[in-house]
């Protein structure tokens, strides 16, 4: 009964999470709102776009009830911009995650405010979650609309690789139709078959480049792990699948380094505790095996 998997999400589980990402569809059939456990689906009326979770969008796509609009960041121009930024502009860091969308602030008309901003919120009024901002809940990765048609170009969302793979695999024609027109709009449907497949090939090639560039960075960041004394390393901008890929390796290295330095660490902590002359909080249960 108990789960036999080691701690840390596996690839399949990350892919499962990615299927909760919202994507934009253009329905081809009417479909009434369905009362699901995760909330009601929007009513689908043919020419109107709607945002649905990826798994549902793919289901509709398979039944030819809807077309999927790929997110703007999947456009070849956006992808090559990101690759340029990753290789030339800032070859050390990963590209920035998408910014929070801005909204009009009703208390100060005319001033835009970052949604769920952490600066101006008067926190601490309800629930127990630490992700709570005034009046509601902070949405995080699979629930933020970072893969819809409105998502900004030039930023990779948390589940970028998984969503891109799924879209290319199951909705390749839609991706080609939307991106093939050059400008991106809906006018690209008339492109010939050969050009649409070339667009797909281009997107696939760019994605592969991006995967390789970023994988190389993640690998080289393990060089920093060797001298991983500080305890914290920022991996801002890394995607979920990339984390899953390197989790075992990175955690193994960190734990190995930690065990090697265990005696140093305990000595330092003891010295600190003596210096501060106050009871450490449960530090005595450190048993490092050797």
């Amino acid at each position: 009964m108990a789960l036999p998997l080691p701690p840390g999400l596996t690839h399949a589980e990350v892919a499962f999470l990615a299927e909760m990402e919202l994507v934009t569809v253009v329905p081809r059939q009417r479909l009434d709102s369905i009362d699901l456990l995760g909330g009601k689906t929007p009513v689908l009326r043919p020419p109107h776009r709607a945002d649905l979770p990826l798994w549902l969008a793919l289901l509709l796509k398979k039944q030819r009830r809807a077309n999927i609009l790929p997110p703007a960041w999947l456009h070849p121009a956006s992808l090559s911009d990101i690759i340029h930024a990753e290789t030339k502009l800032n070859p050390e860091a990963f590209s920035e995650p998408p910014p929070r969308p801005s909204r009009a602030d009703p208390s100060r008309p005319g001033i835009a405010r970052r949604q769920h901003g952490s600066g101006g919120g008067d926190d601490g009024d309800d629930d127990d979650d630490d992700g709570v901002y005034s009046g509601g809940v902070t949405l995080s990765a699979p629930f933020r609309p970072s893969c819809t048609a409105d998502a900004p170009a030039g930023y990779l969302p948390y589940h970028w690789l998984e969503v891109a793979e799924q879209l290319l695999a199951h909705a390749g024609d839609d991706v080609a139709a939307a991106l093939g027109g050059g400008g991106g709009g809906s006018g690209g449907t008339a492109t010939s078959l050969s050009s649409s497949s070339s667009v797909l090939g281009e997107v696939r090639g760019l994605l592969r480049d991006l995967v390789e560039v970023r994988a190389a960075k993640l690998r080289s960041s393990t060089a920093a792990l060797g001298s991983f004394g500080g305890g914290v390393m920022s991996l801002r901008g890394v995607g979920a699948m990339e984390l899953a890929e390197s989790r075992g390796f990175v955690l193994g290295v960190v734990d190995g380094v930690r065990k090697l330095g265990a005696s140093v660490e305990t000595a330092r902590r003891e010295a600190e505790e003596e210096g501060m002359d106050e009871g450490g909080d449960g530090e005595s249960d450190e048993e490092m095996g050797f």
């Binding site: 995650p97 929070r100 952490s118 995080s140 990765a141 948390y158 991983f228 004394g229 500080g230 305890g231 914290v232 390393m233 920022s234 991996l235 801002r236 901008g237 890394v238 984390l243 990175v250 960190v254 380094v257 930690r258 330095g261 265990a262 140093v264 660490e265 330092r268």
Partner: peptide
């Protein structure tokens, strides 16, 4: 709590830290 040093980093939202 690191091996050589305890550390505090001001993290940005939606970043991933190890």
């Amino acid at each position: 709590k690191g091996v050589e040093d305890d550390n505090a980093v001001k993290g940005m939202e939606i970043s991933v830290a190890l």
